[in-house]
Design a protein around this nucleic acid. Structure first.
Lengths: 201, 201
DNA sequence: TTTGTAAGTAAGCAAACGTTTACTTACTTT
DNA sequence: AAAGTAAGTAAACGTTTGCTTACTTACAAA
């Protein structure tokens, strides 16, 4: 039997991400995608049930999956708090600035009800997506090193600035000087863990 | 001459926001909007040039404008740092949890290239959108109270967690117990300004 | 009361939408 | 070499899209 063309399968995914990043989720159509990938619309339906199925799989597998893998690379949940947070920040920041298309869909994931629902169902079915981070935070709360907030709050406080900083990074790429670099990130990371107030002498 | 029906004008905007919040930006169509508002599609085009014009005006005027107004209510740029940040957090959080539809489009604004572009152009033309916040941060940097980061970085560190906390607030509304309340927000606000590390004795 | 003007509608345009049918191509197994 | 099978395509299905035309309604000025 004829083997499936893995190159085309990869093309569908990467070109879909590209269109979403450049024109927005609302401007992605199956016809446009097929044309850009140089294939027939029908071919997409061999691999994906329908448009929603394609979007959900793109988001969960291609984007969230890869992001999780990248952010947890060489991360040790038992590491000292500041060191662990720094690792996660650098991993996350570096991955996202080098994967603009994945970043774009990640942003859409927070806005689109479809993707939001898919993420929650995935989390319920397979347990915590970013397990080692959960473990890391629990350890540090139990050791009395960080304040005793629920996981979701810790995550919002510690990690949501990263996405905005990445967005600023891309904005500034189109202007005279870059103000957000990987070096900047270390200072931001410290500010988040220790606060941005300058301690009184 | 026939006066324009202000009720219908308001209906277009509020129902558009509702559809976007419930079904996503990618599922809003002019026909669906007209039907839901009980008017002819043509009527929308009396008030808005096209679909993009409608979306941009909704986002800039209806959502960003109202959000700015709400967040700056009773805010004094000359107030002490912790007090000022607390005010902004409470204003922002309370506005967003009471305006789910506006919150949804705000999230889309970070993901959609169209809305993103519109926001940047608006910012360039009319100067800083959240002027008093700019002033507030500048004052505190100059007084040596907070670290000397660029405005954009301060804003990402100080305010981006709010949106994620609001998202969690809405998520938890559909589940057994609410973990994020206006009272929680004060603790989060303190954690962001002073850090979440527990100081060593 | 007539006239001018803007608001609003019903109906429908071409184009694009997501999806499917009928078919061809390429490869494996017999 | 023939049969079998999955991959892939061209063309088009019916629907919906953004948007427009032709018309009616409601009001203010003359």
């Amino acid at each position: 039997m004829r083997p499936k063309n893995l190159i085309k399968e990869e093309a569908i995914r990467s070109i879909a991400l590209q269109i979403i990043a450049d024109e927005g989720l609302e401007n992605l159509s199956m016809q446009k995608l097929a044309k850009a990938a140089g294939i027939s619309p029908r071919t997409i339906y061999i691999k994906y049930e329908n448009k929603e199925d394609l979007l959900v799989k793109l988001f969960i597998e291609e984007v969230l999956g890869a992001y999780e893998k990248a952010i947890l690379k060489n991360f040790d949940p038992a590491a000292p708090f500041a060191e662990g947070v720094q690792k996660l920040w650098l991993n996350g920041f570096n991955y996202l600035i080098n994967n603009r298309h994945a970043f774009a869909l990640l942003q859409h994931g927070k806005a689109s009800p479809l993707l939001n629902r898919a993420f929650q169902q995935k989390n319920i079915k397979e347990g915590d997506f970013f397990g080692p981070i959960h473990q890391f935070l629990t350890l540090n709360v139990e050791a009395g090193i960080i304040k005793d907030f629920p996981q979701e709050i810790h995550r919002a406080l510690l990690f949501s600035p990263i996405l905005d900083l990445v967005a600023e990074y891309f904005d500034y790429q189109t202007r005279p000087q870059q103000i957000i670099t990987p070096e900047t990130i270390l200072a931001c990371c410290e500010a988040v863990t220790q606060g941005i107030l300058i301690p009184k002498k």
